[in-house]
Nucleic acid binder design. Sequence first.
RNA 1: GCGUCGGUGGUAGAGUGGUCAAUUACAAGAGACUGUAAAUCUCUCGCCUUCGGGCUACGUAGGUUCGAAUCCUACCCGGCGCA
Length: 396
Amino acid sequence: MTFSFEIEKEISNGLARVGTIKTAHGEIKTPAFVAVGTKATVKGLTPDQIKETGVQTIICNTYHLYLDPGAEQIKKLGGLHKMMNWSGPLMTDSGGFQVFSLGAAYGKGLSKILKKSDELLLSEQSDEEDKPRIAKIDPNGVMFRAHDDGSAHYFTPEKSINIQHNLGADIIFAFDECTSPHESLHYQKEALDRTHRWAKQSLGYHKLKNTGQALFGIVQGGRNEELRKESATFIGNLDFEGFGIGGSFEKEDMTNAVEWVNSILPKEKPRHLLGIGEPIDLFGAVEKGCDLFDCVNPTRIGRNGMVYTKNGRINLMNKEFRDDSTPLDDCKCYACKNFSRAYIAHLMHAKEILGATLISIHNIYFITHMVMQMRETLLSGDFLSYKKDFLKQYYH
RNA sequence: GCGUCGGUGGUAGAGUGGUCAAUUACAAGAGACUGUAAAUCUCUCGCCUUCGGGCUACGUAGGUUCGAAUCCUACCCGGCGCA
């Protein structure tokens, strides 16, 4: 087995830790931010550009790559690493998130993050249930109708793992159901049992094949403390190489949810908080013992003109930046070193793709280095003051 | 000069007697985005407003009509054709 996780330092009065994951394609110094490369590309960036941001590893998506160009095709092309020319560690997500995004969330503008202020709306809207889902769940798997051509596809845990074997990432995930924060407790329980059963199936099938990849199980349980703990206990007892923490959260309560889970999960294995990436969430999650994170935000909001800065996000599309000759922020990324806000704002208004690329480079650099700095300060003992200073300036 | 077609909000371009402050697109202004259905989506976009409405507007000036961006007349401007 080429996979290992070594903890370099644990914070004695908390859950946080610093470590190193070793894979056949190199190391990941944790805590680390993982760039999202859904369709075998971090949108807008070449592998060299990605590397230059400090990113150590990329997570691709099983559902999307299965649809196009197909897992067999990728295998034929030498696997994900070779095809996309990424020599570092790679991960693949199982398609479990698409159960949510193409299922309960489809066409509803739903986020897996629920803010307290949204909960009032929830009761009013709850009856406009069941519109056009294009992912349908049954006890054995999920039927997806492809979002592009409408073709029908059926995923089971075994199928997801099989696809991930063909894709060939270093770290792969069990097939799970990411539930909507709007589901009832009754439904959350039912979904959790399903995810647990699927976790065992994923693991069983994976063990048979001996591919050398590391399989991570995924903890679910939504916003409910009992379910989160139950899930951490169940998944934590299975023989996974590491864990994902998935599902929906209450924004204001996310750090607690992470703490419930990480207090139970075996600490000698790495924990990946799936799909989380805002600064305040990352500080909380690192503090409560998460090692890995991924999030579409640096690239998605970047393509839409939103820029992370030490003083908070700015919308570069706004008028005020059209003649701002300062850099996006004061970091050492390629965009900040070479271009002004005004120029990049011009590119964005002109719909020139370089604008999206430059902001994506900056945003990934920003988040990646913020997490790196968390690692440094965990080692030096300055984490809490770094957290305090950073958040104070960011959310000023 | 004659004939002809046309002049609509930042732009393009609908509308051809009431339901028109005027479809739509773009531009503009703002907001959203957390395991990517996303270079996407939402809102605003004449002026004023106690958000009920009020006022000024479809080249200009008159006119017909209960009512005109829409019909008539003159003028101004532009395209095209003929001299």
